[in-house]
Design a protein around this nucleic acid. Structure first.
Lengths: 220, 220
DNA sequence: TCATTATTAGAGTGATTACTCTAAAGGTCA
DNA sequence: TGACCTTTAGAGTAATCACTCTAATAATGA
């Protein structure tokens, strides 16, 4: 792998594990066994590394939120959306963790993120409207808009919430379990709008994923 | 006001306005026109200032979430809860903004916050159960628990969301408007569980508060 | 009044950090 | 081979920050 690419990869991992604030450019360089000079040959500053990581994140989410244009949405589609989005959030969790600061110090990133947010919100709304067209949920346009926004906030805040409110160590096993708990919470958000005939199958599907947060919290 | 109290006040304001990361102890001291030595005479370090601010926040929320033990809950109670909580969140918004980092560097704070969270979640559940006892909402225990958790996450993430996704300046007018939009979103969260006869009055009450986020976002 | 304690000023310090500069090494191609 | 461009090393630097130290001043109380 090219040095530039290695820097992006390593930075992403270190930022995720330790938080952007705790990872210096010298840390990144020494983690890769390269010199600070080399790092700054490839990136003009730390912000640019972050910006480049963000671009890969944005691209990934944009692809994940595509709607199938040839067929109606199913409840399984919804599950796949959520799993993909939560996985992406996990892989780039430092972004949402330090978002306020990162946007504050980089206006270009802030603008770009704002456009991204609007696009995402619109997509989430479309997904819920797609589910309505498929007869899976029943909600007014106004309800769909409020639901989409609440979904967005909940999803993007999920790992932050987990980290602050439960004593989480960085372990694959646990993170996966808590990811499922996040999906569970999102389904709880939309479940009141589910049409009668879909309640049981959706409930089955969600509970087969893993533990709910409720179940996890009893244990901790 | 005593110097110690002035330090707490000024720190809280500066942290809120600029973020804890951007406010140094020297900033705080010079903002108050006192020497760094003086500041460190009253507090052994920056963490202790934060901890003391946190304690006032915790105390305030604990008081706000008391249930009336002599009468059933009304929809107006719910509104008052939300207004108080959102106001408190605004007054201490730096805490939730930098929560992950702040808990990470101070184990005592982390433990204390964890207890606080559990207590709050339990209170929010009680409030929803109180509303159920009053015949205002209709939801199973399981639904109430999921609803309470989603409410908590949404509320504590609200100002962070606002700051990152809308281009907000620090102005009283705007902040108040966005506070109302937050209340609007929370009511959207619980509205599916409202009993038929309360839908109209609640909807009236909420819309009389101010603009929804939807209305605000069109303008920006 | 005077001794004692509480409060304050302000210069200073060691550690950290983002980033720079120069020169060397490696690769490419005529 | 040798000219030229790309990549790398690594010492260094200016700025910043949390915090310390000493001595002066104010408050308190016998």
């Amino acid at each position: 792998m090219k040095t530039r690419e290695r820097i992006i990869q390593a930075s992403k991992e270190l930022f995720n594990e330790q938080g952007e604030r705790n990872v210096t450019t010298n840390h990144i360089a020494s983690h890769l066994g390269i010199s600070p000079g080399n790092l700054y040959y490839h990136f003009k500053n730390k912000q640019q590394i972050i910006f480049d990581i963000y671009l890969t994140y944005e691209k990934q989410v944009d692809e994940q939120l595509q709607m199938p244009d040839d067929r109606p949405l199913t409840i399984n589609d919804k599950l796949i959306y959520l799993q993909a989005i939560f996985k992406g959030l996990w892989d780039y969790r430092f972004l949402h963790r330090d978002l306020q600061y990162l946007l504050e110090i980089n206006e270009e990133l802030h603008k770009r993120y704002n456009d991204f947010f609007k696009r995402c919100l619109s997509r989430v709304q479309s997904i819920y409207m797609g589910l309505r067209d498929s007869g899976i949920i029943d909600a007014s346009d106004k309800e769909v808009r409020a639901l989409a926004l609440n979904t967005w906030i909940l999803v993007t805040s999920w790992f932050g919430f987990m980290h602050t409110n439960l004593l989480i160590e960085e372990g694959q096993e646990e993170s996966l379990e808590l990811l499922h708990a996040g999906i569970y919470q999102i389904f709880a958000l939309e479940s009141p709008y589910l049409n009668e005939e879909y309640r049981e199958p959706v409930s089955q599907m969600v509970s087969s994923l893993g533990k709910s947060l409720e179940q996890i919290m009893v244990l901790t």
